[in-house]
Amino acid sequence: MNALEIKALSKSFRSNFLYKKTSILKNVDINVNKGSIYGFLGLNGAGKTTTIKCILGLTRPDHGTIRLFGKETGKASDRASIGFLPESPYYYDYLNAKETLALSGKLSSLSNEKIKERTAKIISLVGLDGKEDLLLKKFSKGMLQRVGLAQALINDPDLIILDEPFSGLDPIGRKELRDIILSLKAEGKTIFFSSHILQDMELIVDDIGILMNGKITKEGKLKDLVKKTIKHPVDYSLEDLFLKEIKK
């Protein structure tokens, strides 16, 4: 069973009342295997964030279906199995990290005991030990990214969606995030993430999907795709594959 299955997803936006609609997603098909790490690639404006918003119900698709663990989504309760880290995370700067996690847990219907237990574990996992009582307005972008990841994991989700999780992180932070993603995979979680930082993606993904102009142009196992696309894949890289794809 796929953790996430998107079929013929289309979405268009009207930028102005008088202007015609602009198509953002055109029949997008995505299959994310359970327990895998899926890298979602695309240039700026390709429609990656719109796809993620459709999965989360923040935006309504015009057509298409989205299935989570075999079940078609549509209700708020379907998001109980998802953890989401938005791009450039925005949180309540008058709360501290602990309060943010408590709010996140309550919104996911966790009991106070469970919130306490998960908070202690996650604070340590994302490296926020000793900072949990600081107000978020005093946090750097990298620290906020850690809080973002922590709130996404509070409900122990089966599917973790990360929108540009490496942006704003220093090399050490990126390495730590890669390790966290791999440890989540080891726990049997499915991770779906978009990123511009191909080097990081290449090191951890199992499968990739390339979104170009609202369409998935390539999807599958990273190594298979690189072998098929690059003639001499001795020193193949995801960057080569991606550049070849966008030049088409």
Binding site: L56, P86, P89, Y90, Y91, L107, Q151, N155
Partner: peptide, 12 residues
């Protein structure tokens, strides 16, 4: 400020 994403991405 997009904090609404934080709330509405939960089962709310």
């Amino acid at each position: 400020k997009k904090t609404v994403y934080f709330i509405l991405s939960k089962p709310v």
